[in-house]
Write a protein that binds this DNA or RNA. Structure first.
Lengths: 192, 192
DNA sequence: CATGTAAGTAAGTAATCACTTACTTAATTT
DNA sequence: AAATTAAGTAAGTGATTACTTACTTACATG
């Protein structure tokens, strides 16, 4: 276990509590207690609860992870490439579950910020997929590649949402991978 | 405009406010004011904020709508059937947007209840789709129909989530229908 | 006319909220 | 050794919270 600075301990505690009980459901007293820090220290460092919240969002954002995913695409065969992307996407979502919970809970309070976060990411993921598809596609079917990209991203995101957030299923990694690999095949059927 | 009873006016106000600001972000005073009712009346009828919340969930549940969708399946061609199901599913989600917002915001606080709500619905939708698919399928591919059902449901749910809740896009009905019809074709490609 | 019902008003409860002030302690740096 | 820094403690601020009490008003029903 790493030793965390006082500041980081507060951010960790706030991150977890906000994701479990929402912004309004979490008190600063509780955050301080969870971080084993006095409430005064919390306010000395962050000033207000609101700005602590914004620091949490900044520090724990999913954006860098997903941008890294987009950058790291390698030149496999189409099927291998899509499968590795699907896995990387799914497990990035899992590792950022708390961040996603927070943004979903506060989507109305912070709608502009949250639209900003997700709009660009979604667009970039879809663009990447379209670029990949168009490199490999054989025929011109009567539906466009953008919609296939949306469908692929949607299947995976919904799988995450259903298993990890709504139903909290204990589903094995190999079962997840089996499903993701089937999803890849569904997409391949539509472009090949 | 219908005249609502005092009780129903409170439920309507609470429904909207809970969906916009969450349970903890909404005060009983605000609910009463929005419903044009005195706060005392609110407590006389519902006793506690908590039980008002539960009444809202009961009254506004998406369950009956989705069960009706499952019952009303008619005998079109496979493509027409899936397309009409897709539309019905999507627009039911849209009409129950506030309910979905509330359950997402409070998923940690009321996890058992919310798992109960969605677990059965998801299972029944997937079962219905598998039943439909197996009636029409021609060959035995190497991935099973359950996974195609999950993919189909997932695409549509994610489309709703992305457009209506996360990004609040102003997307036309005909554009939605174009996307849904493409989603149907993606699925058809995988079972035919 | 008398009674019951559904609502309102005014006031107040104890608890909790975010946040502040004033002072102290311990360790590190200069 | 003196000064700075990062933390703590104790106490309290005014505002807001869910919820209550006591009494009142207006209307409908028997």
């Amino acid at each position: 276990m790493e030793k965390l600075s006082t500041r980081d301990r507060i951010i960790e505690a706030a991150y977890t509590l906000f994701s479990e009980k929402g912004y309004h459901g979490t008190s600063t007293r509780e955050i301080a207690k969870t971080a084993s820090v006095s409430e005064v220290t919390l306010f000395r460092i962050f000033g207000t609860k609101e700005s602590l919240f914004e620091e949490v969002l900044k520090t724990k954002s999913i954006i860098p992870d997903l941008l890294a995913m987009i950058r790291d695409v390698e030149n496999y065969s189409l099927e291998d490439l899509l499968f590795s992307l699907a896995k990387r996407f799914y497990y990035t979502l899992v590792s950022k579950k708390k961040f996603i919970m927070i943004t979903f809970s506060e989507v109305n309070q912070y709608s502009e910020k949250i639209i900003d976060i997700y709009q660009k990411l979604i667009d970039q993921i879809d663009e990447l997929l379209v670029r990949i598809f168009s490199k490999y596609k054989n025929s011109n079917r009567n539906f466009d590649l953008k919609i296939i990209a949306m469908a692929f991203r949607g299947m995976i995101f919904d799988l995450f949402l259903t298993n990890e957030i709504l139903l909290r299923k204990d589903i094995t990694k190999s079962e997840i991978n089996r499903i993701l690999s089937s999803y890849v095949k569904i997409v391949l059927n539509s472009i090949e």
